[in-house]
């Protein structure tokens, strides 16, 4: 077990603890799903739920109240280019 704190680097405010941010997803629907109803179903409920690096949005609720985009590895919670 590792005890550690995930930190995110906000381009405006600087490096802050993850608790200052709200997580937001960038939904993806596979191109192979073409039929409109199937796309609607996928958009509403399905998730890629990637085990690896995902590009996602985070909202800096405690600071500038702006969204930022970053890549995070869901297997480790590492943020590859995290300046924190």
């Amino acid at each position: 077990m590792t005890i550690r704190r995930l930190r995110i680097s906000c381009p405006h405010c600087g490096v802050r603890a993850v608790e200052e941010f709200v997580h937001g997803e960038i939904p993806t629907i596979p191109e192979g799903i073409v039929e409109p109803e199937a796309r609607d179903l996928d958009r509403a409920f399905m998730h890629t739920n990637a085990e690896g690096v995902v590009v996602e949005r985070w909202f800096h609720a405690f600071g500038c109240r702006r969204w930022l985009t970053l890549a995070r590895d869901t297997r480790t919670n590492d943020i590859p280019d995290n300046r924190g």
Binding site: C13, G14, V15, R16, A17, E19, E20, A61, F62, G63, C64
Partner: peptide
């Protein structure tokens, strides 16, 4: 988190768990 050292300066974030 790290406070600014220059003056004047603005900073924002969690202090005592508050924004």
């Amino acid at each position: 988190w790290e406070l600014p050292t220059e003056r004047p300066a603005f900073a924002q974030g969690a202090v005592a768990g508050l924004p």
